[in-house]
């Protein structure tokens, strides 16, 4: 398999302190890859470096073989923000937000064409939000809120999705339906990198896992790398690993 995300020798420092230290990792195309690590492990920072949103000290990131800049110009990569970083009172509708996925392809006036409208309809249908297109975004449930931003990524034509802690504060049913959506998208060839610090379920739906603690502890197929030993090294101790979870061995 070719890789969707390729990261080589990536180091990021905040105020001189390394937050990501010589990260080398790749995510195969079409994977649902979990990015696992404690709070502060550098998951969000890794996303930011993939999105060119943080100055990197050294290293290089390639997305489907392109530089980040080219990938962004072509709309290949999209970031689904953490819930708390969005102002849900903003006077924008579901459709408005999804349309923002098309903005990169418009001129400075951002006037949607017929084609843009159609792509937005399609994206809304793929995440089952067609009936909610006129809702103000704050008037959606937690799961629907995530779907809006996934739809925006789809309208953009993104084939790499970055989801930062999408399951934080979301109930089990919502999580299951979001996972269902990610699996649908996987069948359509979309690569997903999903960050989580809660281990309870991530092993059950990710086919690949990256264990991160400033540096990569282990990365690869879930069944190969998601072991007690690796988890313990990622989390300093076995604290936080729930006993009796079926996928654990």
């Amino acid at each position: 398999m070719t890789s969707a995300i390729d990261i080589e020798n990536l180091t990021v420092r905040y105020h001189g302190k390394a937050v990501l230290d010589d990260v080398n990792v790749s995510v195969p195309a079409g994977a649902i890859c979990g990015l696992v690590g404690m709070n502060g492990a550098g998951k969000s920072t890794l996303f930011k470096s993939i999105m060119n949103a943080v100055p990197v000290a050294s290293g290089k990131v390639r997305l489907e073989g392109h530089t980040v800049k080219t990938a962004q110009k072509n709309g290949i990569v999209a970031y689904v923000p953490q819930t708390e970083s969005v102002d849900w009172n903003f006077p924008v509708s579901v459709r408005d937000v999804v349309m923002m996925g098309r903005y990169g392809f418009m001129n400075i006036l951002r006037r949607p064409s017929e084609n843009d409208q159609e792509l937005v309809n399609e994206a809304l249908a793929r995440v089952h939000l067609i009936d909610f297109e006129d809702r103000q975004v704050g008037q959606l449930s937690g799961g629907q809120r995530k779907r809006v931003f996934v739809a925006r990524a789809l309208a953009q034509g993104a084939t790499i999705l970055l989801l930062d802690e999408p399951f934080a504060g979301v109930d089990a049913k919502t999580e299951a339906s979001l996972v269902g959506l990610l699996k649908d998208l996987q069948k359509q060839g979309i690569t997903t990198l999903v960050a989580a610090h809660d281990l309870a379920t991530i092993g059950s739906y990710c086919d690949h896992i990256i264990l991160l603690k400033q540096a990569v502890i282990a990365a690869g197929r879930t069944k190969d790398v998601f072991t007690q030993k690796n988890i313990a090294r990622t989390y300093d101790s076995v604290f936080g690993v729930k006993e009796g979870v079926p996928w654990m061995r």
């Binding site: 800049k69 962004q72 923002m100």
Partner: peptide, 14 residues
Amino acid sequence: LYSFDQAHASAIRL
């Protein structure tokens, strides 16, 4: 867009 979501704005190279 700039006011609502700067991360997305810069991601699409606005």
